[in-house]
Computed example of a mutant assay.
Amino acid sequence: MALLQVVLAISLWSTIAFADVVFEIVNREPGPVWVGIQGNPGHAHLRGGGFNLNQGQSTSVNAPDNWAGRFWPRTWCDSNSKHCLTGDCGNRLECNGAGGNPPATLLEITLKGDAGKDFYDISLVDGFNIRGSIQPIGGVGDGSRYSCRPAACFADVNGGCPNELRVNHNGMVIACQSACNKFRNSEYCCTGSHSTPQTCPPSRYSNYFKGQCPDAYSYAYDDRKSTFTCKSNRYRIQFGG
C-alpha cells in the first residue's frame, strides 16, 4: 500500500511538473489581427508561429511550463499576399521562427525563470502598433505592485505619436516607430558610445512612450520596474481594449 502511494505521488508530481501553461488570446480590435509568436532560442514557436483572429475571436494556445518567447499583433494584413503593414514576419501567416518587423507592440514572457517565477512584460522598444495586455488568470504572487497584475498598454499611442515617427496609411496613423528604428543612431539605440545606462538616458521620444504607457518598456535601458512576476498556469493575452 505504501509503495502504491509513493507511485501515485510521483505520478501526480510528474503531471504537475510538466503541465502545460495555457495562453488565452483575445482580439478586441475592430478588425482582424494576425497574431505572431516567436519562441526564444531553444523554445518552440507555438502554433507554427502565427494565426488569424477576427474581431471578437479568441483561442487557446498551450505551451510547456518552462516556455519563453514573445507575442505580437500584425495588422493591415492581406490574405492573398500574406503581407502585413505592421509586424510583418515575411509575408506568411505562420511566422515559423521569424520575428515581427517593427513597429509592433511586444508581449514577452519567461515561464519558470529565476526562483521558479514567471516574468512577463509589455515592450514598446520596437515601437507600437495596437494596444495590448498580458495578465495571469489566478496565480500566486507576493502582493506587490508588479506581482500577478496586468502588464498593459491601452493608451492611444498612435494618436499623439510625434510626426516624424508616424507610420501612415490611407490618411490614418497605423503605428508609431521607436526613435531607434527610425533614426538608426547610437544615441537612440544605446549602442557604441551610448551603450551604458549612464550614456543613454531617456530621450524625448522614449519619454513619450513612457508617458503613454508607464508600465511598458520604452527604450533599451528603461527601468526594471516594467517587469511583472507571478506563478500561474494560465495567462490572457489581449489585443485592443
Rank of each mutant, 00 (worst) to 15 (best):
G97I: 03
I122A: 03
Y217N: 09
I237E: 00
Y120W: 05
L4C: 12
V21K: 02
Y235L: 05
I130S: 13
G36W: 06
A220C: 02
Q212I: 04
G211S: 10
R145D: 11
Q5N: 11
G87D: 11
T196P: 02
R131L: 02
S178P: 12
F228T: 14
D156A: 09
S79K: 12
Q177H: 05
V21P: 00
P197C: 10
V6Q: 01
S14T: 07
F228V: 12
C95G: 02
R92C: 09
I16F: 06
H83N: 03
P102R: 01
I174A: 01
K225W: 04
G69C: 08
C89H: 01
I237N: 02
G127P: 13
K231S: 15
G87K: 05
T229K: 08
D121H: 02
G50V: 07
Q238S: 11
N163M: 07
F119D: 04
E108I: 10
L124K: 13
Y205C: 00
H194N: 12
Q238N: 13
G50C: 02
L85Y: 01
V26Q: 05
C89Y: 03
W72C: 13
W13E: 12
C84F: 09
I122P: 11
F23C: 13
C180V: 04
S186T: 10
H83S: 14
N233Y: 08
S79V: 14
S123P: 07
S133G: 05
H43N: 12
G69P: 08
T15S: 01
A2S: 05
Q212M: 12
D215M: 11
S11C: 03
S178I: 13
S81V: 11
W34L: 03
T229A: 07
G69K: 13
R236T: 10
F128H: 13
A104N: 14
S14C: 03
P201H: 08
L124T: 03
K225H: 11
S11Y: 08
R92H: 04
M1G: 10
D78Y: 09
V140A: 01
G99P: 14
R236Q: 15
D126M: 11
C189R: 10
G42K: 01
